[in-house]
Design a protein around this nucleic acid. Sequence first.
RNA 1: GCUCAUAUGGCGGAAUUGGUAGACGCGAUUGACUCAAAAUCAAUUUUUCGAAAGAAAGUUCCGGUUCGACUCCGGAUAUGAGCACCA
Length: 939
Amino acid sequence: MYDFSKIEKKWQTYWKEHQTFKTDVWDFSKPKFYVLDMFPYPSGVGLHAGHVEGYTATDIVSRMKRMQGYNVLHPMGYDSFGLPAEQYAVQTGNHPSQFTEKNIAYFSEQLNTLGFDYDWSKMVATSDPKFYKWTQWIFKNLYQDGYAKYVDMPVNWCEALGTVLSNDEVVDGKSERGGYPVVRKNMKQLCIDQPAFAEKLLEGLEEIDWPESTKEMQRNWIGKSIGAHVTFKIAGHEKEFTVFTTRCDTLFGATYCVLAPEHAYVDEITTEEHKKEVEAYKQACASKSDLERTELNKDKTGVFTGAYAINPVNEEKIPIYISDYVLASYGTGAIMAVPAHDDRDYEFAKKFGIPIIQVLEEVTGTPHENETKKESIVAVVYNPKTKKYLTINWHEKGGRLFIGGTRKENEDALSCAIREIQEETGYKNVECIAELPKIEHHYYAYNKDKYFGIESTGFFFHLKDEEQVEKQLDEDEVFDVEWVDEKKVEEIQDELHQKTYQYAKNPGAMTKDGTHIHSKFLNGMNKQEAIDAMVKWLEEHHCGSRKVNYKFREWIFARQRYWGEPVPIVHLEDGTDYVLEDAELPLVLPELADYKGHHGKAPLENATEWKQYTTKDGRSGTRETSTMPGSAGSSWYYFRYIDPENEKIFCDPKLAEHWLPVDLYMGGPEHAVGHLMYSRIWNRYLYDKGLSPVKEPFKKLVHQGMILGENGIKMGKRYPEYAIDPKDIAKEYGADTLRLYEMFMGPIEASKPWSASGVEGAKKFIDRVFRFFTNLENLTEENDGTLTKIYHQTVKKVTEDFESLGFNTAISQMMIFVNECYKVGKCPKEYAEKFIQMMSCITPHIGEEIWELYGHKETIAYEPWPVYDEKYLVEDEKEIAVQVNGKVRATILVKEEDTDQEIEAKAMEEANVKRHIEGKQIVKVIVIKGRICNIVVKE
RNA sequence: GCUCAUAUGGCGGAAUUGGUAGACGCGAUUGACUCAAAAUCAAUUUUUCGAAAGAAAGUUCCGGUUCGACUCCGGAUAUGAGCACCA
């Protein structure tokens, strides 16, 4: 046992007094390494177990890199704007900075008790005017370059509160607080133009070492889709409207159009007799929250406007509806609907009785050049009473099939199907439930020795009654009529019949690829050919073009809050906007008597004097009273750590050039699209402007997983009784134990449950290390070589695992080394010192303590990192497995220089191997050098 | 619904390019030390059969590729995360 509280305090004081971890950013003589943690919001609760995990991981890497001779920058700071401080201010009337400063001090104190190697001289806090001056400065540039602007956007507007609400502040179309009605309304919002960066952000993802899942999430969020714009004329109107579609190839199947209820043309095109209905529907939609509009999407709603659009490819008049399944905010807020090939349109068309025209049919079988064309049917007949399907069994002559047949001249498909059912099975009373999508089918008929290419129409029938008439069969039609259950139906081999059955079971749109039909110049083409051909046609006829669309929308960049960066914009009386000059920054938050925003208005509206502004040339106006969102400061803070005191620029370009990008960025996966997207946008903007040296700010990103309660349940507000407070653990077991335990729990990215006995185990290991390595009698001056191999293995494994953040396996290797030391009973001092050095990355306090005990006067933090020598790792004799038919039967020792034949011979010697090959024929023997010997035998 | 990730002993988790599944830790069992307990040290610990040698099964389930599959391929199930009428 050792007195961790004394030791830990001692070394924390030492590091502070000696400024051990202060980084000279201007020292370019060594290679740089920039390790960054996502900075925390300084909450009054302090650190949680998840913080400790991420921070320890980066701490270990930064310590190793420092020992490897890098100039390491490992800073820490605070994302200190936020709601708790504001609430405190509202309640107490005190300025939120008091509260914030107190929490920062508390948080920093906690971080220090865990022994992290932060360079506190680089600390930043986003709520510090010295910092937010530059947040405002970058924003100002975004604004002047047109990337930040006021945009008309639909928002949740609450008249009673006089404010805009976010989606989660709206419940059932009413405001969460007060229950006042909320409507969707277009309003001017301060936004950052994210879509302008979409393409660059997508490209940037290719070059960075991030978790694939996070990149994928960002791609989905950006939501690029390649399609086309198609312009429709409106019958009897001058106006045209444009739709966005990814499937312009299906234009011949467009049987109606839909505008979003908020679409600008709705009022204009609605005919007199539909006005009332349309107005009512618009009202209903406006009062629905986004959530309701999407969550209740099972049932499509909408109303007809009375107007018709003209399909440009065939001049057909098709009705224009409005429906909330079309979003005003995506594409053009209008669509062409192709019910045959889109699930949503299909649903809508079914409900409103709109025609469904199939223009693409699935292809089965392989086409042949000399095939005979014909039209045919497949009828799936189901008896709801017995739950069985009607099939005919040709036995060995063709297996089981549904009813099929060829259409006669001038016979429509449905009549043909009914006739065939009667002729082949005798059943005469069937009810057609659905006509199924047509299928193009190619096959070879043995009995006729001919290739056929058919267009088959499927039908789904219910049997009404059992009444039968006499069958009318040709001579060669020899089969049994059988009613079978679902299981037997799935045994049907024929592709056409099986496909038809699938359509019958899952009615809906055909969204797969296929061959175009009923589409004039597209007929016979597949999906991609047809899209290309259609775009060409649209462009030639000036009614459409290729177009890329993004889900990515404007980033609303204003909040009705006090505790955020003031926006450096003034709204002048003449209606124009004025941006503050650089010299006027920072625009500091005024002290207020009352920090509450009344009637939902921004709290800064209370600053009557501060609000007033007069330009040098005497124009007066009022300041923007919204503040920036929380993610503003965090979008660029990693620049400021490099050069935190600079008063001329946000970061000296020479320093940025040297230190960026961040080499390792660690933080929770919850920021996968928020913060990590915003930071990339701001950096990309700065890069394009020549103010950032890199296209992407974070070269390598790792997410630490969540630490769950002992029962595997998420810690937090819902189950506070399971929460683990790192403070308590550090107090009871010491910071070194806490750090070691969290690193040993499992892979850093995985979510893993806390285990109290696991902490005990970590403590036990530290005690074991301490006991052995502080007993100087265990250390020998000379090295007899017993531990040489295991030592070099350990150095290799630990170095590689630290590099790849595999801390659990690195620790496991260190445990193996210590176990070995105990077994041997002594350890050469040179190995002991290097081992302690590796340990010191994880457990820095006992690392320094033992280092000092060994007679060193300086910190261990800058000692050169141990190196391993491959020559001690190669084994002259190695145990490999001998398998017989893939099952291990023995192990043998082989030498490096043994030939395959020698190994094989040695393997055959083994008694257990002999037993298993006895009396059997050896087919072959596989020898893989240094790995395995497999003998394949057969009876 | 869509996208992504994950699935290995009683538990947390190991396992290069496919090559002895279960490293390391926890827990459990046994032994040593002790008057005793704790701590410590040593040993055993995937399951089943067996005194042992050994055998059989085994990485969520089903199927495939291979001399050989936790690893690769196809399909299913479960859990977690994100998105959610994106035309």
